[in-house]
Write a protein that binds this DNA or RNA. Structure first.
Lengths: 230, 230
DNA sequence: TTAGCTTAGTGTGAAAAATACGCTTTAAGC
DNA sequence: GCTTAAAGCGTATTTTTCACACTAAGCTAA
């Protein structure tokens, strides 16, 4: 068959996983155990099998290397520089994902026995292997852009959150301060939040109301072509 | 070398080329000469060589199959369904491009001797080979989305154009009518148009002023982070 | 129990942007 | 010179955005 005779680049996937950790936006890196770039940090990833889509490969590698699963994940970009991998020609389809870090923090360290996995703040990453610095830039730029017209923030927060938490998250991603009243007005006017009959616990000041993201309603409105600019 | 022993999908590229033809938005299709899908229409494309990026491959294939070059081109998405190609496993990186159709219309038919190339209105495409219908949907959706916050329209129009032409183009892409005065106000307020000391010729009514897109200024402003919502 | 600290929670007015809307001008063709 | 077809232009209304500061609630520690 024609496609089997053709010399072809290898195909890999890489995953940029964002998580929110105590008012800091972080990404998950793996310390490489062998060459090339042994000892260097890199995004989790690996080669695509013959019987899986690139998205399936990304999810599989992520599960194998970090124990994470079921997160929001989207294709980012395909990187194909001829010399991006010293082993030879490798084209990589990059994905980015958002996880509720608070929910899965233990999970990661537990399953990553083979390789060291660690969360790094997006503003102080170590040197990265391959062209992963470029991949990161692309991912972070995309996240910043996307968050402005799609309610992605909820993917990073726990199920139940306060409006202040949500605001701080947006401030982190957009890298600018937002006015509390205007932010609340706008967010609530989208009517995508369910106010819960609960309050924050264990804080040494007035406890804030908890909210939940209304995923069902969002899907409905999205299907009707509504948009959600911040 | 590890990457050479690994069974791997073939890697191809496909190009969705948009062009504006007399108030109609069209895409360029190639009639396939052999199986699979012989006689079917498909987007121009082909396999990626070992020593070229996917973008270079897209441009090369496009040049070989249609004679087109030097157009605006961007990566669209990577399609990797396991059974998208009956010949075996083929992952395809799709690109979309915008061409000034008025400038190159002859060019295409001239160079496409081997294969039949034809422009089809986006609203009445023939049945497409492989998963190209899906690729088209993705491309058209992307174009609609992108045109709203980036001045892409200019890539489809001739160098010199009238404001009415520009407006009609936006109406076509966005699929809704726009108010003439408001449109002009907004477009001119971006200050990205150079008013030429020329007018339209050969029309049987008052001739409109011609304008040119100020690419240099656009690059400057874009670099400074300005955005251009319509 | 109360004083003090910390974050939650709330409204209004001013400025800017978006929208709706119709008539006069110009050039060509007959 | 009359008709035809599109060009070109301004204003009033509505909507959205932005700036801005105090009171309420709950905990802590003296």
């Amino acid at each position: 068959m024609y496609t089997y005779e053709y010399p072809r680049p290898a195909l890999s996937v890489d995953c940029v996983i964002f998580g929110l950790d105590e008012n800091e936006l972080k990404v998950l890196l793996i310390e490489r155990g062998h060459d090339p770039y042994a000892g260097c940090w890199a995004f989790p990833g690996g080669f695509v099998d013959m019987d899986e889509t690139t998205e399936a490969a990304a999810k599989r590698e992520l599960w194998e290397e970090t124990g994470l699963q079921n997160m929001f994940m989207e294709q980012l970009y395909t990187f194909s520089d001829v010399h991006r991998d010293p082993r030879g020609r490798v084209v990589s389809v990059a994905y980015y994902a958002l996880v509720k870090l608070s929910d899965v923090k233990d999970q990661v360290s537990a399953s990553s026995d083979a390789q060291k996995a660690e969360w790094f703040p997006v503003n102080s990453l170590p040197a990265l292997a391959f062209d992963h610095a470029k991949i990161f830039d692309t991912a972070f730029t995309r996240l910043k852009g996307k968050v402005r017209y799609q309610p992605l923030g909820f993917e990073l927060l726990p199920e139940k959150f306060t409006l202040s938490q949500l605001q701080k998250l947006y401030e982190l991603i957009l890298n600018k301060e937002l006015d509390k009243r205007n932010f609340r007005k706008k967010i609530l006017s989208m009517a995508l939040l369910i106010e819960l009959p609960e309050r924050q616990k264990g804080v040494s000041h007035r406890a804030a109301k908890l909210y939940q993201f209304d995923k069902v309603k969002y899907k409905e409105l999205e299907a009707k072509g509504f948009s959600f600019e911040l």
